[in-house]
């Protein structure tokens, strides 16, 4: 059995419920953004929808990987299924867990990167060539970090923190530019909470219960996003 870091056993399974709630919220946001894209044909809505689609993907990988790790019966079934490939070798079996973590990290970082680019106002963007080369560089870094993150997990959370901090900054500017609109402020706070959660994940080696705090803050952040969404839709 392979895991990136120790998590409190009492929280095993509950974090998957948190992930499921976050997944459902992301589904609502992705679906509505796609609907707006269909009406307006503006690409920014498509990219925003894809970003939350990546969040959904990351959470699916998390649910599968952690679900196998946490629950013995499931792990035994997977071990038996993979037996022809792993031949009982732990290192090969661990590769599958690493693949799960890698895909989760890649999707998560991809989502934050896309949200960062989309939340930048067009006047802050540079000319097309520079923008394309910038995007390619970021994609390369995201893939690299997702590989390295498998061996040094804090690299992934540190990168998430950096990207989310930039997103928070963009949303703060958005709040100021939108006549201090309440919804803009709430969205900024939502991403700020998710960013703070990454700090707890980085320091989980000090105290495993930091994992619970990180997951809890992430859930609150997404619940705030859902609250803003419902507030807008219900009007």
């Amino acid at each position: 059995m392979f895991s990136l870091f120790n998590t409190p056993t009492w929280f095993n399974g509950i974090d998957l419920i948190f992930a499921l709630v976050t997944l459902v919220i992301s589904l609502f946001i992705a679906r509505y953004s796609w609907k707006v894209y269909r009406l307006t044909s503006e690409n920014k809505f498509k990219y925003f929808s894809i970003a939350f689609g990546l969040v959904i993907l990351a959470l699916c990988f998390k649910l599968v990987t952690y679900g196998i790790l946490y629950f013995n019966p499931v792990r035994e079934i997977v071990d038996v299924t993979l037996q022809p490939i792993t031949q009982g070798e732990n290192s090969i079996r661990d590769l599958f867990y690493r693949a799960g973590y890698f895909l989760q990290m890649l999707s998560t970082l991809g989502a934050w990167l896309l949200i960062f680019f989309v939340s930048q106002k067009s006047r802050a963007r540079l000319n097309k060539f520079y923008e394309v080369s910038q995007i390619l560089l970021f994609i390369y870094l995201v893939v690299l970090i997702s590989i390295v993150g498998n061996f040094k997990y804090f690299v992934f959370y540190l990168t998430s923190l950096v990207l989310l901090s930039l997103i928070v900054l963009n949303y703060y500017k958005n709040y100021l530019n939108n006549n201090r609109n309440e919804n803009s402020l709430l969205v900024m706070w939502a991403f700020l909470l998710i960013a703070i959660a990454q700090v707890f994940f980085i320091f989980v080696f000090l105290w495993s219960s930091f994992y619970f705090l990180g997951e809890f803050l992430t859930l609150i952040g997404f619940l705030l996003i859902f609250y803003v969404y419902r507030k807008i839709i219900k009007k």
Binding site: Y32, F45, F48, V118, N183, S184, K235
Partner: peptide, 16 residues
């Protein structure tokens, strides 16, 4: 009109 107003609020809230 109602749908467009919702779309505009969504755009403003999420900085799109």
């Amino acid at each position: 009109l109602e749908e467009f107003r919702r779309m505009r609020e969504f755009t403003d809230a999420f900085g799109l």
